[in-house]
Write a protein that binds this DNA or RNA. Sequence first.
DNA 1: CTTTGGATCGTCT
DNA 2: GACGATCCAAAGG
Length: 213
Amino acid sequence: MPGAVEAAGAGAAGSTDVGRLVAPTRTFLATSAVAVAPRLLNLLLVSGSRVGRIVEVEAYRGTEDPASHAFGGPTPRNATMFGPAGHLYVYFTYGMHWCANVVCGPPGVAEAVLVRALAPVAGLEEMWEARAAARRERDLCSGPAKLCQALGIDRAYDGLDLLSPSSPVRLLDDGTPPPRRPSVGPRIGISRAVEARWRWWVTNSASVSVGGR
DNA sequence: CTTTGGATCGTCT
DNA sequence: GACGATCCAAAGG
């Protein structure tokens, strides 16, 4: 863990000053997912010694959003989404993949931000071991299920508090600001509410899930 | 580079 | 019983 923090700093090559690592505030996350999502870009997702920088996200607006798992109300599966902000919502999909979300909004409001891609920062060897199918470094975490595989995130981590120092998975800020003007477009892989442009990504990041851009 | 289809099973109707 | 907030290998340009 101390290794991960140090590596995270060292991995931020290119940035001239690396701030110390701090978690975003719960108050910040307790607002709307659409407002929070683009501001999660460039934060770090840390799992043990494995660290990735968030480069692509999507917002899901709970019970009001036909594409959200929370549309239609609470179920055992989406329970975490209805809880407090800053917790990790992990779901299973396509019979074989796990995906990770940062819960947003006040308790009772099921908003969330799906983390779609990370740029690998530290713990690359472990990521390569966890992702035998990956051929290039940029494919290690270039998709919502790929990043869960790379960081070892599965059902066991559903509901954990990303802001707690004792959590196995944490959300941290190393001082790198979000892009002033991120790229924006429609969400991927959904069949309803396809018109909403609630996907944001770091322009030109090689680790973004599709096309790049 | 792009397109296509198979894998695989929890969840909710 | 149908459908995924996906990934990958294979095949074609």
